[in-house]
Design a protein around this nucleic acid. Structure first.
Lengths: 338, 338
DNA sequence: TTGAAAGCGCTAACAG
DNA sequence: CTGTTAGCGCTTTCAA
């Protein structure tokens, strides 16, 4: 396998020193217009491409980012990833994806690989950020930002205010006359994506003077199948609910699926609101009303935050949520009580 | 920012030469068990991590792969990606994702970046493989494999036999009594994912002695919205179809959506079969019967092919398709003709 | 405006 | 079994 050209080859062919070629390549001062032209010409002639690895060895910059996410194939993360990728591309960075597959061991292994490969920063999406990770990342002194999650440490994050978002979502239902609202929450005990959301649900009810009932919240794992099961469980214990707030669109789709199977019409008999506003909400039948997170923008911003931090830590930021109204919610007439 | 430790630091602290440390790190022979232990201990003590960049400069191997795909956030590609990622992880490779965003300029830019970053191979998913790409890749002498697409060049690919798959899918409908079957095809003129599929459709009809009618095939772009439009167009010109074969699950979901809006029941009035067997087929209401491609496996195999090719080109491979039967197809009674 | 030379952190002969 | 040394391809002083 014959070698590609190196800067040396270019220098020789252009009758200049490698230093000069390097300067030209990097737009540094220190050469005449004439040599520049000459060198550039030789470069195109030879089809020379600089070796980013050699460059990285000196600069200690690789122009690549590592992204850790729970599952590339889930709609949620893949939209964030797509925002990351787009922004990275604009800023001339590459992104390495690491599918942590909800398993901490793999995460640690990835962290190590990313460090060895000298990535310039890490974006960590949506999973619980363990102390172990914190220690590893602190040790490697790499900038990191958390997307759609946060931690007990001083690490910048970017997410929506879940409690507020759910509060708004449930208020939306309340304003439309619903009084018996169930909730399909995320993983039980999850301090980031479950507990604050239940809190939002409680607060909304409270605002309307409705008592919170434990049996009206059931737990899933954010996935489709768990939505099916959760809906079944919820309805089994609560024959009277007229609406369900779901903590992810996928779970809402699962609920929809269960209701369809049971021949319970949405939204005529039961209203549904999802969370995230991913493509699955658009594609659902009926299209799902959902509390939208600006996933793509969050992805974009995360790389901006990671890279634009001049020196110190960059600040965390909350992104606005927004209810996407579609067709899965019906207003019910309060006077009739049904 | 203080530096991380280098192999030199380890060597010094362990009172050996860097060569010895290197040998130990790379499991090469040439040291006593005693020094090995000593060195390993020092390594953990210091928390030393080798620098893969420096390594790569010598080895000419970076243990990273580049993946070019049309959109990370589309279900199809993200499943393939997830297979790639898993297999790469098993083989200790990292993967860089490049979202080509259906635009050739970006693809060229990525190809260049991947080359500069010295990736060990490239996986190209599902898009049309232009001559321009071929030239660029040939110039960089990098192994490449195509997934779910193929080319006019001698480049290994991995895909299902689309013609055969569609033939089977349409036969499935035919066997269940359908005689007037419409098709929602992909991008018009696409020689990879559209023309062969239409061919399969034709052949199936032909087997049953049913005449092919141009007006019964309409084109989309594989996406959800295009499925809505295509279904509308198809039905407008063909009041009599009892079944529609769709060239992607997303388009089938679009069709489903349109039919729902029109209050046309699936599968009672119209049967639907999709293509791909992605999560959207599972989540649809009713769940979609679809011609499944082993997307995840294709992703896995692609990296195997890329990496395991001893020397020469590895062979292309066709993957088996399989019909996933769900609830979007009804058998119709031929004797009544309806 | 230019070039020579010293590394970046590591591996791989080559000697001992 | 171990160490010395010459690079990998590039950037960056320092001198000229």
């Amino acid at each position: 396998m014959e070698m590609s050209y190196t800067i040396k080859d270019v220098a020789k062919k252009a009758n200049v020193s490698v230093a000069t070629v390097s300067r030209i390549l990097n737009n540094l001062p220190g050469y005449s217009e004439k040599t520049k032209e000459k060198v550039l010409q030789v470069i195109t002639e030879m089809g020379y491409q600089p070796n980013a690895i050699a460059r990285g060895l000196i600069n200690k910059k690789t122009k690549t980012l590592g992204v850790l996410l729970p599952a590339v194939s889930d709609t949620f993360a893949s939209v964030v990833l797509s925002g990351i990728e787009d922004m990275a591309h604009d800023l001339d960075y590459s992104v390495m994806v690491c599918n942590t597959a909800k398993d901490g061991i793999r995460t640690m292994k990835y962290l190590q690989a990313l460090r060895e490969k000298q990535v310039d920063g890490i974006i960590f999406i949506s999973e619980f950020f363990k102390e172990e990770y914190y220690n590893a990342i602190t040790a490697m002194k790499l900038p990191i930002v958390l997307v759609s999650t946060k931690s007990a440490y001083d690490i910048p994050f970017i997410k929506v205010d879940d409690e507020k978002a759910v509060l708004d979502g449930v208020m939306y239902l309340l304003e439309r006359g619903h009084r018996s609202i169930g909730m399909i929450a995320g993983t039980k005990g999850d301090t980031i994506a479950t507990i604050p959301r239940i809190e939002g649900y409680k607060k909304a009810l409270n605002k309307q003077g409705i008592a919170f009932e434990t049996k009206k919240v059931v737990y899933g794992d954010f996935g489709f199948e768990s939505g099916i099961e959760a809906a079944e469980e919820l309805l089994y214990h609560n024959k009277d609910v007229t609406a369900i707030f779901c903590s992810s669109d996928e779970m809402a789709a699962g609920a929809l699926s269960y209701l369809y199977r049971m021949s319970i019409r949405v939204p005529d008999e039961i209203s549904l609101v999802g969370y995230d506003n991913t493509k699955v909400a658009e594609m659902a039948i009926p299209p799902l009303t959902t509390v939208g997170q600006p996933l793509y923008e969050m992805g974009k911003n995360s790389v901006r935050m990671l890279l634009e931090r001049e020196d110190g830590q960059s600040k965390s930021m909350f992104m606005p949520h927004k209810i996407a109204e579609r067709e899965s919610v019906k207003s019910i007439d309060q006077s009739t009580g049904e």
